[in-house]
């Protein structure tokens, strides 16, 4: 299991076969952002992602590994004035 704080809420993500566990060369990394979004049914949606206060460009979703305790913000555009 990996714990991520997503939009302020602790969320646990199991590592399973479809997630293609990655090697541990990033201090316990078990999934990348593309895989996380897949898991959350958000892949391909119009969203933007911030990890630990830094923007993660869409082009880096595949290579950005997530580690236990990472804080993520996943945002959308909504109606506003």
């Amino acid at each position: 299991m990996i714990q991520l704080i997503i939009n302020g809420q602790p969320q646990h993500f199991p590592v399973h076969d479809q997630m293609r566990p990655l090697t541990n060369d990033h201090d316990g990394a078990v999934l990348n952002i593309t895989q996380l979004l897949e898991h959350m049914a958000l892949r391909g949606k119009r969203i933007a992602v911030e990890r630990n206060g830094e923007i993660v460009p869409r082009s880096k979703f595949d290579e950005q590994l997530l580690i236990n305790g990472d804080r993520l913000e996943i945002v959308v555009a909504v109606g506003g004035g």
Binding site: I6, N7, G8, Q9, Q11, M40, A41, L42, K45, R46, I47, A48, E73, I74, V75, V76, A77, V78, G79, G80, G81
Partner: peptide, 16 residues
């Protein structure tokens, strides 16, 4: 437009 946290667990087909 405003920028807000996506609603976790929302219906993925919800219009954007």
């Amino acid at each position: 437009v405003a920028i807000r946290r996506t609603n976790l667990g929302q219906n993925p087909d919800e219009p954007n």
